[in-house]
Design a protein around this nucleic acid. Structure first.
Lengths: 333, 333
DNA sequence: CAACATTTGGCAATCGCTTGCCACGAGCTT
DNA sequence: AAGCTCGTGGCAAGCGATTGCCAAATGTTG
């Protein structure tokens, strides 16, 4: 790749017979110049194949027209939706979109934020693993929007896990289950706490016994240990922290010859790719994942556009719904 | 997020009692300054929490310490591996990693390349959909590395689909199949061509009949039409363009009461997430996906480091291997 | 000890664009 | 006709680094 001396504002300016500042404004501040002049400049620019250098623009103006999204784990299909939604929204706004992975590590997350800070206008943090205090701290210097995580004072969009968890409990209760066990994800996961809270509260209301075990790695591989632990607990229904774990559990249960849902029911969260074709197909809590990503970017965009904290940070809560498949059934008697 | 007046080279210079250029060199050109001076500068910088502004650095120096990877579809688990591999390699080299999606569209791909051009040092193009001529053209101005695509004169890393396809044919032949049908992916997919070529050549050698149908969208949803078409063809074995399609096919076959592998065998490519727990578990061609991503970034890195085209562009071919599961079996008699 | 080669640090220009401020002319007001 | 707005375009000063070139300091050599 050779670099054939890129055309600059000056080249265009000369060619169009105007000052560089006019060219600049033709692109970035249309109403500051005459419409006719603008059209002419743009046309010349077009003809010369000129594109403003985003680096130079960003360096001077301070904004980069870029947002970054950080997710804990690229291999979790759960993040497909949010990622795609965020990407779409950003692209639609002519904002370039960056995606980074944090390997489920709070430090990595923080690191990446610091390192990208100058290069982006804001961050979408999906299922952030960072402690609340750190997050608040970072939010002082950076533009953040959280997905599936709520922190006092910060904008966020979550899929309604509390209501969703109630739905799971209700579903289980209506199938005659008197006990459930929640196989938890990482303790640093805000969602894990949220889910357990709602699950146990719901269970109590229904007069069901609820226990929590874990943490287990929220991956298929974590399912082995999780399933074994669940079996020992004696509960007739398992609620797994997410579908990845649930699928792992299903597999382990099959290996051990425990039939689902006859002997034990299993439910998960997220409705990921594969939840519908594993066996038995997984009952799981679904939600508008893509919308979550979209909304998060939206928040970043409007925050940036100055009419910011009018009435506190925005908190979006998206509805969730239970998708009932074959992994849950009547409680054994 | 407030911007509390970032510290610059000048601040550090003043504090350390040296010139800005010295500070700059302390970071970017260590051997140009005295080790002692350097240590001192670095220490001061550290204390002041200084980090070079990547934008400014890039603007002046021309390199951005960033690579971008473009994939056709974020929802295809196949790309997990390459993405993760690329990300890891980049991060290890202290290079920031950007990920973009092209929605299976050559134009989008090209667009994104143009728009990111100034902001990155190179592109990893996974399963690029762009016509060969366009790609060659772009490669003149940009630093490209292809994954699962070969173009004369450009560096690439592919998983050995030719050999792999032979393995599939051999496997099928040894099970007594006398015919196979390849359900193709997009015609603009280089891989689709590659696979079909190897499949038909292999089949011919083995005295098997091979037909190609399609194109089908390489997604689960494409499986319905694909399966129906395959059934009509009368072949006893289906080779699907990828696992997504294969899973869709499996599902459709189940719906129609066609038992796999008793009545018909199905094989796929990629060994994606889910290939092992769909029913029946899928026989598929696996490969070192993560390594592919890693290698592609590696290429970009070494190309950038000047000792470039010593002996032509690098072409890496990674070995593939067949994972035999339950979706293939003896041909019906 | 003079002459010369090497290090090492500093000066200042530069990367490509944005933007505050000024100036000029046209259209209005009084 | 003088005095004012407004609307537009240009000038020039940055944004925060890198880097070619020069000069001072240091080391080497005969």
């Amino acid at each position: 790749m050779t670099t054939p001396k890129r055309t600059t504002v000056y080249d265009v300016a000369r060619e169009a017979g105007v000052a560089a500042s006019t060219v600049s404004r033709a692109f970035s501040n249309p109403r500051r110049i005459n419409a006719t002049t603008r059209r002419h400049v743009l046309e010349v620019a077009e003809r010369m194949g000129y594109h403003p250098n985003p680096l130079a623009t960003a360096l001077q103006s301070g904004h980069t027209a870029t947002v970054a999204m950080l997710v804990p784990d690229i291999a979790n299909p759960h993040f497909f939706g949010p990622i795609r939604g965020a990407e779409r929204r950003a692209t639609a706004a002519d904002i370039t979109f960056m995606l980074g992975f944090t390997d489920e590590s709070a430090e990595t997350e923080r690191d990446k934020i610091e390192r990208l800070a100058r290069s982006v206008d804001g961050f979408v943090l999906a299922s952030s693993r960072m402690p609340e205090a750190v997050t608040v701290d970072l939010a002082r210097e950076h533009n953040l929007a959280l997905i599936n995580r709520q922190v006092e004072g910060l904008p966020s969009v979550v899929i309604d896990n509390a209501a969703g968890s109630r739905q799971i409990v209700d579903h289980l209760a209506s199938l005659g289950h008197r006990s459930l066990v929640y196989l938890s994800g990482p303790h640093v996961s805000w969602l894990a706490g949220e889910r357990w809270r709602a699950l146990s509260a719901g269970a109590e209301e229904r007069g069901m016994a609820a226990t929590r075990l874990g943490p287990f790695p929220p991956q298929v591989a974590g399912g082995g240990a999780a399933a074994d632990a669940a079996l020992v607990s004696g509960a007739t229904a398992i609620v797994a922290h997410n579908d990845l774990l649930a699928i792992g559990i299903l597999r382990r249960l099959a290996e051990r010859g425990v039939s689902v849902p006859e002997r034990i029911s299993v439910a998960g969260y997220d409705d990921i790719f594969g939840a519908d074709f594993c066996v038995p197909a997984l009952t799981t809590l679904a939600g508008p994942q893509e919308e979550a990503g979209r909304a998060a970017v939206e928040i970043l965009l409007t925050k940036a556009s100055a009419r910011a904290a009018e009435d506190g940070p925005r908190r979006v809560v998206l509805p969730s719904h239970l998708v009932i498949r074959d992994s849950t059934g009547p409680a054994p008697r």
